[in-house]
Amino acid sequence: MNIFRLFGDLSHLLAIIILLLKIWKTRSCAGISGKSQILFAIVYTSRYLDLMTTYISAYNTFMKIVFVATSYATVFLMYMKFKATYDRNHDTFRIEFLIVPAVILALVINQEFTVLEVLWTFSIYLESVAILPQLFLVSKTGEAESITSHYLFALGSYRALYLLNWVYRYYAEDHYDLIAIVAGLVQTVLYCDFFYLYITKVLKGKKLQLPA
């Protein structure tokens, strides 16, 4: 565990907490893409199946359970409890366009052709693009609440910090995993436009509004 990974995990945890608090406190999930949240639930479910087979550490087990549980809790809040506030008219991204290519790619490019390994690889590929429905929703409505921007910033930072972690591990431990690195790069690049707007607008107290 190095500092980049620790801060990456904490940033990921912070993103989840921000999102759940926003929905719970405002009793609304307006501006949040349910499609992205469904994709995250699929990502964590397919990645953390190894909870059943391998024990790594208490930290690892705890975090995995938290990520899986909170992803289902978010989907529940959006599609059941606060269903009336869900922005379904703007959340129109077709997630099969992300899921199907991720499945095919995982079947073709993987480390080992076993069920758990292919599912792990699928989750890595799917995670890299899972935020697209959310970014699409923001671009469709042309704006995002500050709290939603903070959520997106924390969520985007997490994989960027993981990239630094992988650079560190390459030099310090001679360890690298090309599948995770390439997917992580794609994932981080997708946030770049948002990061720019966040730093130039939201941090200066303005609302995130896309140029007309």
């Binding site: 995990d9 190894d50 391998t54 790594i56 550490s57 690892n60 360890h175 995770a180």
Partner: peptide, 10 residues
């Protein structure tokens, strides 16, 4: 490189 090392990540 040991792939299983990546599995201890989240």
């Amino acid at each position: 490189t040991n792939h299983s090392l990546t599995k201890d990540e989240l």
